[in-house]
Design a protein around this nucleic acid. Structure first.
Lengths: 138, 138
DNA sequence: CGTAAAGCTCTAGTGTCTAGAGATATTATG
DNA sequence: CATAATATCTCTAGACACTAGAGCTTTACG
């Protein structure tokens, strides 16, 4: 049986975060020691590793809850898991696209300003005040 | 003089958000009508447009506060504005890099799964359970 | 057995809004 | 001018995914 600190060390999930996941229903309430401290099984460790990994990949708590639920039915077809991951992937791609546009806009703004003049002439400030100086919509 | 609703329509910032910005000190407390409703000037509109635009470009509230402060000193040199924007730009680039790694990981995971088999064999689920199936560190 | 480290619960805070309740103000229509 | 519809007011709480701290108890180790 593992203490919560052991779990934290092995998964890289911080102790308060583990308790938070329990509250959120991502992990089951652990057994307790005589003195009321949480004691985890190997299965709990696997579950937390799964969660950690999914969070690293940017899955939201709700998505993870769904994936866990799917995981409990090993004989079910896996279309749903596939769909969740695919939806997530397209969300990530959208974010990348948005950030790239933003990157270009900022590059353009910054490149016009070498820091060598006064605020009233600064392209950074002017670009923020006047949408007309932008390339794209946003 | 513009009502808060007018301001919202013209800038695309929602009404409660405008009040929130006031609370956060991003915009000055507006004058009030006899019946205690906010009344804004053209200058307030410009300020809110600036904020909106900066938020769209992903600047955080604190950065915007700094930029506004700079904007109040038109004769000062603009190095600081330039620096803030440049720091922000490199933050955006980092985010893009991270998301791209994530994209590749997800692509790889999803491409292994066509939804046509059972959960117990599903690559999506297995990849989440077993870090060893990943390409990169994360 | 004494102490330090780790654990417990509970509350509150982070950042950027968003939503709702219940009251008042303004505007439009008849 | 009366009424109805819309807008606005303040205040509180909620969303997300944690994080921090207070004050107390349990466990591990020498």
């Amino acid at each position: 049986m593992l203490s919560i600190g052991e779990m934290a060390r092995r998964t890289g999930v911080k102790v308060p975060t583990i308790r938070y996941y329990e509250q959120m229903g991502l992990i089951e309430e652990a057994e307790r020691s005589e003195g009321n401290q949480r004691r985890y099984t190997r299965r709990d460790l696997e579950r937390l590793t799964f969660i950690r990994h999914a969070r690293d990949l940017g899955f939201e708590i709700d998505m993870i809850r769904e994936l866990i639920a799917l995981n409990q039915h090993p004989e079910a077809p896996c279309e749903n898991a596939d769909r969740i991951a695919a939806v997530h992937l397209s969300g990530v791609r959208e974010k990348i696209e948005k950030l790239k546009k933003l990157e270009h806009e900022l590059e353009r703004i910054v490149s016009h300003c070498d820091g060598g003049h006064r605020i009233e002439d600064c392209y950074v400030i002017r670009a923020l005040s006047d949408h007309g100086l932008c390339d794209h919509e946003h």
